[in-house]
């Protein structure tokens, strides 16, 4: 792989309406951009959703990803969230083999990682854990020896540190959710 290829976290404000996820996902697939994860949910405003996309590429590719996203009419704003000025979190649920003998050992590790056991069966426990990606990877590695039955990750979500925000208070959408006053750069 090209050594200039890096992982980048993008935060994308979109109009919360049908088809927007498909437009963004379609853009990545048809232009051949690599995507590690994409998570999406509504913001404090129900008409606006926020996507967190973890993408890979060299600087030129990243520049194109941002510009092409900006061209989508339903995309309101795209910002990069660099690691030094952002907080990243991801949720993982892991179902691990656990019998009476090793359940307490697993529970000990979960405590150290400040996770929680949310379901217990005679031969398995389900663990919930939140953290940045390296914390989650470290935890998953420690669970491997017990035998992981299944694992699901939500994908990364992120915000800027401090009092800075992406700024969605000024955005005006009309009653049909087509934006007013915005000037998408098109193609």
């Amino acid at each position: 792989m090209n050594e200039n290829v890096n992982r980048h976290v993008l935060s994308v404000l979109v109009v919360n309406q049908t088809g927007v996820l498909s437009r963004v996902a379609g853009l990545f697939s048809r232009r051949g951009y690599s995507i590690d994860s994409l998570s999406v949910g509504v913001t404090q405003r129900e008409d606006i959703s926020r996507m967190t996309i973890v993408a890979r590429g060299d600087d030129a590719t990243l520049e194109q990803i941002k510009k092409q996203l900006d061209k989508l009419v339903d995309v309101i704003k795209v910002v990069f969230l660099p690691p030094e000025s952002s907080v990243y979190r991801e949720l993982v649920l892991v179902k691990v083999n656990a019998d009476a003998e090793n359940r307490s050992a697993i529970s000990g590790i979960v405590d150290i990682f400040r996770g929680g056991i949310i379901d217990v069966a005679p031969d398995a426990v389900t663990v919930e854990l939140t953290g940045d990606q390296s914390k989650i990877e470290a935890f998953v590695e420690l669970m491997q020896p017990y035998g992981i039955q299944e694992l699901v990750r939500t994908g990364l979500t992120a915000l800027q540190r401090g009092n800075r925000t992406i700024g969605l208070d000024d955005i005006e959408l009309d009653e049909n959710y087509s934006e007013i006053g915005r000037t998408p750069h098109h193609g």
């Binding site: 030129a60 520049e63 194109q64 510009k67 092409q68 900006d70 061209k71 750069h185 098109h186 193609g187």
Partner: peptide
């Protein structure tokens, strides 16, 4: 007029 065309095919 299209910023995405800048540096797309030629630097």
């Amino acid at each position: 007029i299209d910023p995405a065309e800048i540096n797309k095919n030629i630097k």
